[in-house]
Design a protein around this nucleic acid. Structure first.
Lengths: 238, 238
DNA sequence: TGCGATAGTAAACATCGTTCACCTGACTGA
DNA sequence: TCAGTCAGGTGAACGATGTTTACTATCGCA
Protein backbone atom coordinates (compact mmCIF):
# COMPACT_ATOMS: atom_id res chain seq x y z
CA UNK A 1 0.00 0.00 0.00
CA UNK A 2 2.99 2.26 -0.37
CA UNK A 3 4.45 2.37 -3.82
CA UNK A 4 2.06 0.47 -6.03
CA UNK A 5 -1.11 2.52 -5.65
CA UNK A 6 -0.96 5.67 -3.53
CA UNK A 7 -4.00 5.76 -1.33
CA UNK A 8 -6.27 8.75 -1.37
CA UNK A 9 -4.80 10.07 1.86
CA UNK A 10 -1.29 9.84 0.44
CA UNK A 11 -2.29 11.71 -2.68
CA UNK A 12 -3.86 14.53 -0.72
CA UNK A 13 -0.89 14.63 1.59
CA UNK A 14 1.69 14.91 -1.16
CA UNK A 15 -0.41 17.56 -2.85
CA UNK A 16 -0.40 19.57 0.35
CA UNK A 17 3.35 19.09 0.70
CA UNK A 18 3.80 20.43 -2.81
CA UNK A 19 1.56 23.39 -2.12
CA UNK A 20 3.55 24.24 0.98
CA UNK A 21 6.82 24.10 -0.93
CA UNK A 22 5.35 26.23 -3.70
CA UNK A 23 4.34 28.83 -1.17
CA UNK A 24 7.78 28.72 0.40
CA UNK A 25 9.41 29.24 -2.98
CA UNK A 26 7.15 32.17 -3.71
CA UNK A 27 8.19 33.85 -0.49
CA UNK A 28 11.82 32.95 -1.12
CA UNK A 29 11.76 34.60 -4.52
CA UNK A 30 9.96 37.64 -3.18
CA UNK A 31 12.17 38.38 -0.23
CA UNK A 32 15.03 35.95 0.18
CA UNK A 33 15.39 33.03 2.57
CA UNK A 34 14.57 35.21 5.56
CA UNK A 35 11.16 35.92 4.13
CA UNK A 36 10.04 32.30 4.17
CA UNK A 37 7.42 32.34 6.90
CA UNK A 38 5.33 29.43 8.04
CA UNK A 39 2.53 31.74 9.06
CA UNK A 40 2.50 33.48 5.68
CA UNK A 41 2.53 30.19 3.80
CA UNK A 42 -0.34 28.95 5.93
CA UNK A 43 -2.28 32.18 5.39
CA UNK A 44 -1.82 31.87 1.62
CA UNK A 45 -3.15 28.33 1.82
CA UNK A 46 -6.11 29.24 4.01
CA UNK A 47 -4.69 27.38 6.97
CA UNK A 48 -3.07 28.18 10.26
CA UNK A 49 0.63 27.85 10.92
CA UNK A 50 0.64 24.85 13.26
CA UNK A 51 -0.99 22.75 10.56
CA UNK A 52 2.25 22.83 8.59
CA UNK A 53 3.91 20.91 11.39
CA UNK A 54 1.91 17.91 10.26
CA UNK A 55 4.03 17.97 7.10
CA UNK A 56 7.40 19.39 8.14
CA UNK A 57 8.95 19.15 11.59
CA UNK A 58 10.29 22.70 11.41
CA UNK A 59 10.80 25.67 9.14
CA UNK A 60 14.37 24.57 8.60
CA UNK A 61 13.29 21.16 7.40
CA UNK A 62 10.95 22.81 4.93
CA UNK A 63 13.77 24.94 3.59
CA UNK A 64 15.98 21.88 3.27
CA UNK A 65 13.28 20.05 1.35
CA UNK A 66 12.81 23.05 -0.90
CA UNK A 67 16.55 23.23 -1.54
CA UNK A 68 16.62 19.57 -2.48
CA UNK A 69 13.78 20.10 -4.92
CA UNK A 70 15.62 23.03 -6.45
CA UNK A 71 18.78 21.00 -6.83
CA UNK A 72 16.77 18.33 -8.62
CA UNK A 73 15.24 21.00 -10.83
CA UNK A 74 18.52 22.50 -11.95
CA UNK A 75 20.12 19.08 -12.38
CA UNK A 76 17.19 18.04 -14.53
CA UNK A 77 17.38 21.11 -16.71
CA UNK A 78 21.11 20.74 -17.17
CA UNK A 79 20.79 17.11 -18.10
CA UNK A 80 17.96 17.90 -20.48
CA UNK A 81 20.00 20.64 -22.14
CA UNK A 82 22.82 18.16 -22.64
CA UNK A 83 20.56 15.53 -24.14
CA UNK A 84 18.98 18.04 -26.47
CA UNK A 85 22.38 19.03 -27.83
CA UNK A 86 22.95 15.93 -29.88
CA UNK A 87 25.73 13.39 -29.68
CA UNK A 88 28.86 15.53 -29.71
CA UNK A 89 30.27 15.76 -26.17
CA UNK A 90 31.70 19.22 -26.86
CA UNK A 91 28.32 20.57 -27.83
CA UNK A 92 26.81 18.80 -24.86
CA UNK A 93 29.24 20.52 -22.51
CA UNK A 94 28.47 23.92 -23.97
CA UNK A 95 24.73 23.30 -23.79
CA UNK A 96 24.87 22.11 -20.20
CA UNK A 97 27.01 25.05 -19.12
CA UNK A 98 24.59 27.46 -20.77
CA UNK A 99 21.69 25.62 -19.23
CA UNK A 100 23.22 25.95 -15.79
CA UNK A 101 23.77 29.66 -16.22
CA UNK A 102 20.31 30.12 -17.68
CA UNK A 103 18.68 28.49 -14.69
CA UNK A 104 20.78 30.56 -12.31
CA UNK A 105 20.00 33.84 -14.03
CA UNK A 106 16.32 32.98 -14.23
CA UNK A 107 16.19 31.89 -10.58
CA UNK A 108 18.81 33.95 -8.78
CA UNK A 109 17.40 33.63 -5.27
CA UNK A 110 16.94 29.90 -5.63
CA UNK A 111 20.51 29.69 -6.89
CA UNK A 112 21.64 31.47 -3.76
CA UNK A 113 19.82 29.01 -1.57
CA UNK A 114 21.25 25.95 -3.26
CA UNK A 115 24.69 27.10 -4.33
CA UNK A 116 25.38 29.96 -1.92
CA UNK A 117 26.54 30.22 1.63
CA UNK A 118 25.16 27.31 3.61
CA UNK A 119 22.39 28.50 5.87
CA UNK A 120 23.51 27.31 9.28
CA UNK A 121 21.97 23.89 9.78
CA UNK A 122 20.70 23.68 6.22
CA UNK A 123 23.79 23.24 4.12
CA UNK A 124 25.50 21.12 6.69
CA UNK A 125 22.62 18.81 7.48
CA UNK A 126 20.70 18.65 4.25
CA UNK A 127 23.53 18.40 1.77
CA UNK A 128 25.90 15.96 3.34
CA UNK A 129 29.48 15.67 2.25
CA UNK A 130 29.43 12.16 0.85
CA UNK A 131 29.19 10.53 -2.55
CA UNK A 132 25.40 10.51 -2.67
CA UNK A 133 25.40 14.27 -2.42
CA UNK A 134 22.71 15.83 -4.58
CA UNK A 135 25.48 17.83 -6.22
CA UNK A 136 26.71 14.62 -7.75
CA UNK A 137 23.60 14.39 -9.90
CA UNK A 138 24.46 17.76 -11.32
CA UNK A 139 28.07 16.90 -12.00
CA UNK A 140 27.50 13.48 -13.47
CA UNK A 141 26.50 14.47 -17.02
CA UNK A 142 29.44 16.87 -17.22
CA UNK A 143 31.74 14.10 -16.11
CA UNK A 144 30.29 11.72 -18.68
CA UNK A 145 30.79 14.19 -21.50
CA UNK A 146 34.38 14.86 -20.45
CA UNK A 147 35.02 11.14 -20.38
CA UNK A 148 33.67 10.56 -23.89
CA UNK A 149 35.69 13.51 -25.13
CA UNK A 150 38.83 12.12 -23.54
CA UNK A 151 38.29 8.68 -25.00
CA UNK A 152 37.90 10.21 -28.43
CA UNK A 153 41.02 12.33 -28.14
CA UNK A 154 42.97 13.45 -25.06
CA UNK A 155 43.87 17.08 -24.53
CA UNK A 156 46.93 18.61 -22.85
CA UNK A 157 46.89 18.64 -19.05
CA UNK A 158 49.39 19.14 -16.25
CA UNK A 159 51.79 16.21 -15.94
CA UNK A 160 50.19 12.98 -14.80
CA UNK A 161 52.66 12.45 -11.97
CA UNK A 162 51.96 15.84 -10.48
CA UNK A 163 48.23 15.22 -10.51
CA UNK A 164 48.51 11.70 -9.16
CA UNK A 165 50.58 12.91 -6.26
CA UNK A 166 48.82 16.16 -5.41
CA UNK A 167 45.25 15.45 -6.44
CA UNK A 168 44.85 11.69 -6.55
CA UNK A 169 44.65 11.02 -2.82
CA UNK A 170 41.74 13.43 -2.42
CA UNK A 171 39.46 12.23 -5.17
CA UNK A 172 37.97 9.57 -2.94
CA UNK A 173 34.29 10.33 -3.43
CA UNK A 174 34.72 10.76 -7.17
CA UNK A 175 36.58 7.50 -7.60
CA UNK A 176 34.06 5.47 -5.64
CA UNK A 177 31.49 5.90 -8.36
CA UNK A 178 33.92 6.26 -11.28
CA UNK A 179 36.74 3.91 -10.45
CA UNK A 180 38.24 3.95 -13.91
CA UNK A 181 38.24 7.71 -14.28
CA UNK A 182 41.55 8.96 -15.70
CA UNK A 183 43.01 11.55 -13.41
CA UNK A 184 43.37 13.94 -16.31
CA UNK A 185 39.61 13.84 -16.78
CA UNK A 186 39.01 14.29 -13.08
CA UNK A 187 41.27 17.32 -12.99
CA UNK A 188 39.76 18.89 -16.08
CA UNK A 189 36.27 18.28 -14.79
CA UNK A 190 36.97 19.85 -11.41
CA UNK A 191 38.83 22.77 -12.90
CA UNK A 192 36.12 23.36 -15.45
CA UNK A 193 33.36 23.05 -12.88
CA UNK A 194 35.06 25.61 -10.69
CA UNK A 195 35.31 27.97 -13.64
CA UNK A 196 31.65 27.47 -14.52
CA UNK A 197 30.49 27.81 -10.94
CA UNK A 198 32.68 30.86 -10.39
CA UNK A 199 31.46 32.60 -13.48
CA UNK A 200 27.80 31.99 -12.71
CA UNK A 201 27.97 32.70 -8.99
CA UNK A 202 29.94 35.85 -9.68
CA UNK A 203 27.23 37.10 -11.99
CA UNK A 204 24.26 36.10 -9.89
CA UNK A 205 25.80 37.37 -6.66
CA UNK A 206 26.70 40.71 -8.23
CA UNK A 207 30.41 40.31 -7.69
CA UNK A 208 31.55 41.56 -11.06
CA UNK A 209 29.35 44.54 -11.81
CA UNK A 210 32.11 46.93 -10.85
CA UNK A 211 34.15 45.71 -13.80
CA UNK A 212 31.77 44.26 -16.34
CA UNK A 213 28.29 45.35 -17.34
CA UNK A 214 27.39 42.23 -19.31
CA UNK A 215 28.68 39.10 -17.63
CA UNK A 216 27.18 36.88 -20.29
CA UNK A 217 29.79 38.16 -22.74
CA UNK A 218 32.61 36.88 -20.55
CA UNK A 219 30.71 33.65 -20.01
CA UNK A 220 30.48 33.00 -23.73
CA UNK A 221 34.14 33.89 -24.25
CA UNK A 222 35.10 31.45 -21.54
CA UNK A 223 33.04 28.68 -23.07
CA UNK A 224 34.83 29.12 -26.38
CA UNK A 225 38.20 29.31 -24.65
CA UNK A 226 37.59 26.27 -22.46
CA UNK A 227 36.19 24.08 -25.21
CA UNK A 228 39.09 24.86 -27.50
CA UNK A 229 41.38 24.01 -24.61
CA UNK A 230 39.93 20.52 -24.36
CA UNK A 231 39.98 20.09 -28.12
CA UNK A 232 36.24 20.35 -28.54
CA UNK A 233 36.43 23.38 -30.80
CA UNK A 234 38.75 24.53 -33.53
CA UNK A 235 41.37 26.71 -31.85
CA UNK A 236 39.94 30.23 -31.87
CA UNK A 237 43.38 31.81 -32.04
CA UNK A 238 44.56 33.02 -35.44
CA UNK B 1 35.66 70.41 14.55
CA UNK B 2 35.23 67.33 12.42
CA UNK B 3 38.45 65.91 11.07
CA UNK B 4 41.24 67.77 12.83
CA UNK B 5 40.67 66.74 16.44
CA UNK B 6 37.89 64.29 17.18
CA UNK B 7 36.00 65.60 20.16
CA UNK B 8 35.47 63.39 23.15
CA UNK B 9 31.89 62.66 22.17
CA UNK B 10 33.00 61.59 18.73
CA UNK B 11 35.61 59.27 20.16
CA UNK B 12 33.12 57.60 22.46
CA UNK B 13 30.62 57.35 19.67
CA UNK B 14 32.98 55.65 17.25
CA UNK B 15 34.08 53.29 20.01
CA UNK B 16 30.45 52.32 20.58
CA UNK B 17 29.94 51.86 16.86
CA UNK B 18 32.92 49.52 16.78
CA UNK B 19 31.67 47.59 19.76
CA UNK B 20 28.29 47.13 18.11
CA UNK B 21 29.90 45.84 14.95
CA UNK B 22 32.12 43.51 16.93
CA UNK B 23 29.09 42.09 18.65
CA UNK B 24 27.32 41.71 15.33
CA UNK B 25 30.29 39.84 13.88
CA UNK B 26 30.42 37.53 16.87
CA UNK B 27 26.78 36.63 16.38
CA UNK B 28 27.32 36.30 12.63
CA UNK B 29 30.15 33.84 13.14
CA UNK B 30 28.23 31.90 15.76
CA UNK B 31 24.99 31.45 13.87
CA UNK B 32 24.99 33.02 10.44
CA UNK B 33 23.44 36.28 9.28
CA UNK B 34 20.07 35.34 10.71
CA UNK B 35 21.55 35.20 14.17
CA UNK B 36 22.55 38.86 14.20
CA UNK B 37 20.12 40.29 16.72
CA UNK B 38 19.96 43.86 17.91
CA UNK B 39 18.62 42.78 21.26
CA UNK B 40 21.40 40.24 21.78
CA UNK B 41 24.09 42.74 20.82
CA UNK B 42 22.59 45.24 23.23
CA UNK B 43 22.44 42.65 25.99
CA UNK B 44 26.08 41.76 25.47
CA UNK B 45 26.93 45.44 25.74
CA UNK B 46 24.81 46.00 28.82
CA UNK B 47 22.33 48.14 26.94
CA UNK B 48 18.82 47.89 25.62
CA UNK B 49 18.00 47.37 21.99
CA UNK B 50 16.57 50.78 21.08
CA UNK B 51 19.85 52.41 22.07
CA UNK B 52 21.46 50.91 18.99
CA UNK B 53 19.15 53.01 16.88
CA UNK B 54 21.23 56.02 17.96
CA UNK B 55 24.05 54.47 15.91
CA UNK B 56 22.39 52.56 13.10
CA UNK B 57 19.02 53.31 11.55
CA UNK B 58 18.14 49.63 11.27
CA UNK B 59 19.46 46.12 11.62
CA UNK B 60 19.96 46.01 7.89
CA UNK B 61 22.12 49.11 7.97
CA UNK B 62 24.26 47.54 10.66
CA UNK B 63 24.74 44.43 8.54
CA UNK B 64 25.66 46.58 5.56
CA UNK B 65 28.24 48.46 7.62
CA UNK B 66 29.65 45.19 8.89
CA UNK B 67 29.87 43.84 5.35
CA UNK B 68 31.74 46.94 4.24
CA UNK B 69 34.21 46.52 7.08
CA UNK B 70 34.74 42.90 6.13
CA UNK B 71 35.35 43.83 2.52
CA UNK B 72 37.96 46.31 3.67
CA UNK B 73 39.52 43.65 5.86
CA UNK B 74 39.90 41.08 3.12
CA UNK B 75 41.06 43.67 0.61
CA UNK B 76 43.68 44.82 3.09
CA UNK B 77 44.94 41.32 3.76
CA UNK B 78 45.12 40.52 0.07
CA UNK B 79 47.02 43.70 -0.68
CA UNK B 80 49.37 43.06 2.21
CA UNK B 81 50.03 39.53 1.01
CA UNK B 82 50.90 40.91 -2.39
CA UNK B 83 53.25 43.52 -1.01
CA UNK B 84 54.98 40.96 1.18
CA UNK B 85 55.69 38.77 -1.81
CA UNK B 86 58.42 40.92 -3.28
CA UNK B 87 58.64 42.55 -6.67
CA UNK B 88 57.82 39.75 -9.06
CA UNK B 89 54.23 40.15 -10.28
CA UNK B 90 53.85 36.40 -10.70
CA UNK B 91 54.75 35.77 -7.09
CA UNK B 92 52.48 38.64 -6.10
CA UNK B 93 49.54 37.06 -7.90
CA UNK B 94 50.12 33.73 -6.22
CA UNK B 95 50.47 35.33 -2.80
CA UNK B 96 47.33 37.41 -3.22
CA UNK B 97 45.32 34.42 -4.42
CA UNK B 98 46.51 32.38 -1.46
CA UNK B 99 45.76 35.29 0.85
CA UNK B 100 42.24 35.55 -0.48
CA UNK B 101 41.61 31.85 0.04
CA UNK B 102 43.21 31.93 3.47
CA UNK B 103 40.92 34.73 4.62
CA UNK B 104 37.89 32.93 3.22
CA UNK B 105 38.74 29.63 4.87
CA UNK B 106 39.50 31.35 8.18
CA UNK B 107 36.29 33.41 8.03
CA UNK B 108 33.77 31.33 6.13
CA UNK B 109 30.64 32.99 7.45
CA UNK B 110 32.02 36.45 6.82
CA UNK B 111 32.95 35.32 3.32
CA UNK B 112 29.38 34.25 2.79
CA UNK B 113 28.07 37.63 3.85
CA UNK B 114 30.39 39.60 1.60
CA UNK B 115 30.78 37.31 -1.39
CA UNK B 116 27.66 35.18 -1.20
CA UNK B 117 24.08 35.60 -2.19
CA UNK B 118 23.07 39.22 -1.67
CA UNK B 119 20.83 39.49 1.35
CA UNK B 120 17.78 41.27 -0.06
CA UNK B 121 18.37 44.96 0.47
CA UNK B 122 21.97 44.51 1.57
CA UNK B 123 23.80 43.51 -1.56
CA UNK B 124 21.76 45.78 -3.73
CA UNK B 125 21.94 48.88 -1.60
CA UNK B 126 25.29 48.58 0.12
CA UNK B 127 27.41 47.31 -2.73
CA UNK B 128 26.32 49.44 -5.61
CA UNK B 129 27.09 48.47 -9.14
CA UNK B 130 29.37 51.32 -10.05
CA UNK B 131 33.11 51.93 -10.33
CA UNK B 132 33.57 52.91 -6.68
CA UNK B 133 32.32 49.50 -5.65
CA UNK B 134 34.22 48.15 -2.67
CA UNK B 135 34.99 45.12 -4.79
CA UNK B 136 37.20 47.33 -6.89
CA UNK B 137 39.62 47.77 -4.00
CA UNK B 138 40.02 44.04 -3.91
CA UNK B 139 40.54 43.66 -7.63
CA UNK B 140 42.92 46.58 -8.08
CA UNK B 141 46.15 44.92 -6.89
CA UNK B 142 45.43 41.87 -9.05
CA UNK B 143 44.88 44.12 -12.01
CA UNK B 144 48.11 45.99 -11.33
CA UNK B 145 50.11 42.76 -11.15
CA UNK B 146 48.60 41.49 -14.39
CA UNK B 147 49.44 44.78 -16.05
CA UNK B 148 53.09 44.69 -14.99
CA UNK B 149 53.32 41.08 -16.11
CA UNK B 150 51.86 41.97 -19.49
CA UNK B 151 54.21 44.88 -19.98
CA UNK B 152 57.14 42.61 -19.20
CA UNK B 153 56.00 39.91 -21.60
CA UNK B 154 52.56 39.22 -23.10
CA UNK B 155 51.02 35.80 -22.95
CA UNK B 156 48.73 34.04 -25.45
CA UNK B 157 45.09 35.09 -25.32
CA UNK B 158 42.02 34.74 -27.52
CA UNK B 159 42.28 36.90 -30.64
CA UNK B 160 42.19 40.60 -30.00
CA UNK B 161 39.38 41.23 -32.47
CA UNK B 162 37.11 38.72 -30.82
CA UNK B 163 37.65 40.28 -27.41
CA UNK B 164 37.26 43.84 -28.66
CA UNK B 165 33.97 42.97 -30.26
CA UNK B 166 32.48 40.67 -27.64
CA UNK B 167 33.97 42.00 -24.44
CA UNK B 168 35.12 45.54 -25.10
CA UNK B 169 31.73 47.24 -25.05
CA UNK B 170 30.98 45.92 -21.57
CA UNK B 171 34.15 46.86 -19.77
CA UNK B 172 32.85 50.33 -19.05
CA UNK B 173 33.47 50.48 -15.32
CA UNK B 174 36.90 48.92 -15.65
CA UNK B 175 38.00 51.31 -18.36
CA UNK B 176 36.90 54.39 -16.52
CA UNK B 177 39.63 53.95 -13.97
CA UNK B 178 42.09 52.13 -16.23
CA UNK B 179 41.67 53.77 -19.59
CA UNK B 180 44.83 52.37 -21.11
CA UNK B 181 44.19 48.80 -20.02
CA UNK B 182 44.92 46.37 -22.87
CA UNK B 183 41.89 44.23 -23.48
CA UNK B 184 44.03 41.11 -23.22
CA UNK B 185 44.86 42.07 -19.64
CA UNK B 186 41.24 42.88 -18.88
CA UNK B 187 40.13 39.49 -20.18
CA UNK B 188 42.84 37.57 -18.35
CA UNK B 189 42.08 39.42 -15.14
CA UNK B 190 38.36 38.75 -15.32
CA UNK B 191 38.84 35.14 -16.31
CA UNK B 192 41.40 34.61 -13.57
CA UNK B 193 39.28 36.34 -10.98
CA UNK B 194 36.33 34.15 -11.86
CA UNK B 195 38.51 31.08 -11.47
CA UNK B 196 39.84 32.26 -8.13
CA UNK B 197 36.42 33.26 -6.86
CA UNK B 198 34.87 30.04 -8.09
CA UNK B 199 37.50 27.87 -6.48
CA UNK B 200 37.26 29.63 -3.13
CA UNK B 201 33.47 29.99 -3.04
CA UNK B 202 33.12 26.37 -4.05
CA UNK B 203 35.26 25.26 -1.12
CA UNK B 204 33.78 27.58 1.48
CA UNK B 205 30.20 26.90 0.40
CA UNK B 206 30.73 23.13 0.46
CA UNK B 207 29.96 22.68 -3.21
CA UNK B 208 32.77 20.27 -4.02
CA UNK B 209 32.88 17.90 -1.08
CA UNK B 210 31.08 15.24 -3.04
CA UNK B 211 34.06 14.95 -5.37
CA UNK B 212 37.10 16.23 -3.54
CA UNK B 213 38.09 15.86 0.07
CA UNK B 214 40.90 18.43 0.04
CA UNK B 215 39.99 21.45 -2.06
CA UNK B 216 43.28 23.14 -1.28
CA UNK B 217 45.05 20.59 -3.47
CA UNK B 218 43.02 21.63 -6.49
CA UNK B 219 43.54 25.27 -5.56
CA UNK B 220 47.31 24.88 -5.60
CA UNK B 221 47.22 22.95 -8.86
CA UNK B 222 45.17 25.70 -10.42
CA UNK B 223 47.58 28.38 -9.25
CA UNK B 224 50.46 26.57 -10.92
CA UNK B 225 48.45 25.99 -14.05
CA UNK B 226 47.20 29.56 -14.30
CA UNK B 227 50.54 31.18 -13.61
CA UNK B 228 52.27 29.05 -16.21
CA UNK B 229 49.48 30.01 -18.60
CA UNK B 230 50.31 33.70 -18.21
CA UNK B 231 54.03 33.04 -18.41
CA UNK B 232 54.72 33.68 -14.76
CA UNK B 233 56.07 30.20 -14.13
CA UNK B 234 58.15 27.73 -16.10
CA UNK B 235 55.68 25.54 -17.96
CA UNK B 236 54.92 22.65 -15.62
CA UNK B 237 54.34 20.27 -18.49
CA UNK B 238 57.18 17.91 -19.35
C1' DT C 1 26.31 78.26 35.23
C1' DG C 2 22.76 77.11 32.20
C1' DC C 3 21.08 75.09 28.09
C1' DG C 4 20.74 71.93 24.32
C1' DA C 5 22.06 68.06 21.95
C1' DT C 6 23.12 63.18 23.01
C1' DA C 7 22.61 58.65 24.81
C1' DG C 8 19.93 55.80 27.09
C1' DT C 9 15.55 53.56 29.07
C1' DA C 10 10.80 51.50 29.47
C1' DA C 11 6.72 50.24 27.40
C1' DA C 12 4.24 48.91 23.59
C1' DC C 13 3.12 46.78 18.86
C1' DA C 14 3.25 43.53 15.29
C1' DT C 15 5.39 39.58 13.75
C1' DC C 16 7.67 35.26 14.00
C1' DG C 17 8.57 29.82 15.17
C1' DT C 18 6.96 26.54 18.10
C1' DT C 19 4.18 23.84 21.51
C1' DC C 20 0.11 22.35 23.67
C1' DA C 21 -4.67 20.91 24.29
C1' DC C 22 -8.47 20.14 21.82
C1' DC C 23 -11.61 18.97 18.10
C1' DT C 24 -13.39 16.70 13.87
C1' DG C 25 -13.97 13.84 10.31
C1' DA C 26 -12.54 9.90 7.53
C1' DC C 27 -11.03 5.21 7.29
C1' DT C 28 -10.68 0.50 9.40
C1' DG C 29 -11.49 -3.80 11.99
C1' DA C 30 -14.68 -6.71 14.13
C1' DT D 1 -23.01 -1.63 10.69
C1' DC D 2 -20.82 0.35 14.32
C1' DA D 3 -17.08 1.70 17.32
C1' DG D 4 -12.69 3.38 17.58
C1' DT D 5 -8.26 5.03 15.97
C1' DC D 6 -5.69 8.53 14.02
C1' DA D 7 -4.32 12.03 10.55
C1' DG D 8 -5.33 16.79 9.82
C1' DG D 9 -6.57 21.14 11.54
C1' DT D 10 -7.68 24.98 15.05
C1' DG D 11 -6.97 28.35 18.86
C1' DA D 12 -4.42 30.01 22.51
C1' DA D 13 -0.20 30.71 24.47
C1' DC D 14 5.09 31.47 25.12
C1' DG D 15 9.23 33.60 24.16
C1' DA D 16 11.71 35.95 20.90
C1' DT D 17 12.51 39.38 17.33
C1' DG D 18 12.77 44.60 14.97
C1' DT D 19 10.97 48.93 15.53
C1' DT D 20 8.53 53.17 17.34
C1' DT D 21 7.27 56.34 20.82
C1' DA D 22 7.60 59.01 24.93
C1' DC D 23 10.39 60.07 28.43
C1' DT D 24 14.70 60.93 31.21
C1' DA D 25 19.27 61.84 32.60
C1' DT D 26 23.69 63.35 31.55
C1' DC D 27 27.53 65.22 29.10
C1' DG D 28 29.79 69.13 26.92
C1' DC D 29 30.02 73.46 24.99
C1' DA D 30 28.89 78.66 25.25
Amino acid sequence: MTASSPTRRERLRSATVSEIKEGARKLLVAGGPQAISLRQIARDMGMTAPAIYRYFPSLEALVVALAEDLMDEVAGEVAAAGEAAGDDPGRQLAAMARGYRAWAVANPVEFGLVFGAPVPGVGDLGLECLPDDPGADLGRPFLAAFLRLWQREPWPTPPRDYMLEHLGPYLGPLRETHGDLPIEVAYTFLSGWARLYGMVAMEVFHQVRWALTRPEALFEAEIVQFLSQVGALPDPRP
